[in-house]
Design a protein around this nucleic acid. Structure first.
Length: 112
DNA sequence: ACTATGACTGATT
DNA sequence: TAATCAGCCATAG
């Protein structure tokens, strides 16, 4: 297994509801790792290919995908999101689909 | 210990 | 809208 950081990130990404998206920085914050958005990307790289992890619901803070437009990864991510009903405006997802976690729910789900 | 490298961000220009 | 910059920090060599 990897470091505890990756476990935290994994767990947090799992909380993103279907049809919603979150940014790398947002995941980092919720995972208790403020300012470490890049670490989230790193963690997702390690777990890429894992069907249990909704990696496609994670994107940049401005709503754009982290991959080069036209790349296989970008196309796949876009397709997965469209399949969940997440719509795009150009290369960005519509802001209405951003995950806005309820604090109480989070505290309940993240308790140990 | 040092350098380079990211699936990043926010502010500035 | 787009480019630049400075922070960010775990990892790898």
């Amino acid at each position: 297994m990897s470091s505890a950081y990756h476990q935290q990130i994994w767990h947090t990404v799992l909380q993103i509801p279907l049809g919603k998206v979150a940014s790398y920085g947002q995941i980092a914050d919720l995972a208790g790792l403020p300012g470490r958005a890049r670490l989230v990307g790193k963690a997702l790289t390690l777990y890429q290919g894992s069907p249990q992890l909704p990696w496609h619901r994670v994107l940049r803070s401005d709503g754009s995908l982290a991959f080069c437009t036209g790349s296989a990864q970008a196309l796949e991510q876009r397709q997965l999101l469209l399949a969940e009903g997440v719509h795009f405006t150009g290369r960005k997802v519509c802001p209405q689909y951003r995950w806005q976690p309820d604090l109480a729910t989070l505290l309940f789900q993240l308790r140990y």
